[in-house]
Amino acid sequence: MASLINLKTFTDDRGNLTVIEKVVPFDIKRIFYIYGVDDSERGGHRHLNTIQAAICIRGHCIIYSNNGISESSFLLDSPDKCLLIQPEDWHTMHSFSDDAILMVLASEYFDAQDYIHTPYPFQYSKAV
């Protein structure tokens, strides 16, 4: 199941420095970011192999996750929160703030064959 981790952040009067080092359980092969999202829902899939780490580096959004057994929604509203999304986690991203930038680190290069677009059979809720 998807899980939140807190990224190590150093803060002083000059600002904040957040480090992504030795916290994701995979070698990073792909980085992408999503921004300028209207009221659309993004995602709507799970993977065969890809593990992802999602960080809303600006603004906020909600990620819904369902692994076929349980479901959860996660509010990403700080750049020191990182959501680890396992391959079996069917997920959607929604409720993006106007300024949101969601950065995703992925364990695999893009492969259309790795995507499963069919949700698990039980209904889900977008509530946090």
Rank of each mutant, 00 (worst) to 15 (best):
R46I: 02
H47L: 09
L48I: 12
L48Q: 02
L48D: 02
L48E: 02
N49T: 12
N49P: 11
I51R: 09
I51M: 08
Q52G: 06
Q52V: 04
A53L: 10
I55V: 15
I55N: 03
I55C: 05
C56T: 07
R58S: 11
R58W: 06
G59C: 12
H60V: 06
C61P: 09
C61Q: 03
I62C: 11
I62Q: 01
I62F: 08
I62A: 01
N67T: 09
N67D: 15
G68T: 06
I69K: 15
I69H: 14
E71W: 01
E71N: 08
S73L: 04
S73M: 08
S73R: 10
L75D: 03
L76V: 02
D77A: 12
D77F: 05
D77E: 09
S78W: 00
S78D: 15
P79H: 09
D80W: 01
K81E: 05
K81H: 10
K81I: 05
C82Y: 08
C82E: 01
L83H: 00
I85D: 00
Q86L: 14
E88H: 05
D89G: 13
W90S: 08
W90M: 07
W90G: 05
W90Y: 15
H91F: 11
H91V: 13
H91K: 07
M93T: 13
H94K: 11
S95M: 13
S95I: 14
S97E: 06
D98W: 01
D98S: 13
D99M: 12
D99F: 10
D99E: 15
A100M: 05
A100P: 14
A100W: 00
I101A: 10
I101L: 04
L102A: 09
M103I: 15
M103R: 06
M103F: 08
M103T: 15
M103Q: 09
V104I: 14
A106H: 01
A106Q: 02
S107V: 15
E108Q: 07
E108I: 14
Y109V: 15
Y109I: 15
Y109C: 09
Y109K: 09
F110M: 03
D111N: 11
A112M: 06
